[in-house]
């Protein structure tokens, strides 16, 4: 595998977007950065700019207002890109699924690569999701050889 392709696996920069979460999953996501979990070991950096991001982590339910922003952020990311839906709300809409102002999970708006269940999702699970996503990306990259 060439250096450039290997680099794509070894340097996932994440952008975290809170669609409409109760902040439980957000706290768990940010906990990944702390010394206890230290995701920077995998070369992961938390970035605030879709133009620099490789992985989009979305927490919370999608509603008509933030669906536009979610779609726009996804479009502004460079390809290849991964999307990880975190928590019950992000995966399916959770307990808010039937609410009149809720569209549902993230996959109603953009394609999702990895789902992380839990309410809130555990940091270990989120890290595992990133690794799973990178495995998927690796498969794609190797396939495109």
């Amino acid at each position: 595998m060439s250096f450039l392709k290997k680099s794509q696996i070894k340097s996932p920069w994440l952008m975290h977007f809170d669609c409409g979460s109760c902040n439980g999953c957000d706290i768990e996501t940010l906990a990944c950065l702390t010394p206890v979990y230290d995701v920077e070991r995998f070369g992961i950096i938390n970035v605030g700019n879709p133009r620099h991001a490789d992985v989009l982590i979305v927490t919370g339910t999608v509603n008509p207002r933030n669906a536009v922003v979610l779609k726009n952020l996804y479009d502004q990311m460079p390809t290849p890109k991964l999307v990880i839906a975190v928590g019950a709300c992000g995966c399916t809409g959770g307990v808010f699924r039937e609410a009149p102002n809720v569209l549902g999970g993230v996959d109603k708006v953009i394609p999702v690569d990895v789902y992380v269940p839990g309410c809130p999702a555990k940091p270990e699970a989120i890290m595992d999701a990133v690794v799973t996503g990178l495995g998927k990306l690796k498969g794609i990259l190797e396939g495109s050889k």
Binding site: F17, N49, P50, R51, V69, L73, D75, Q76
Partner: peptide, 10 residues
Amino acid sequence: LASPYMAGLP
């Protein structure tokens, strides 16, 4: 050109 980054707003 890419659409401008306006904190996610289109």
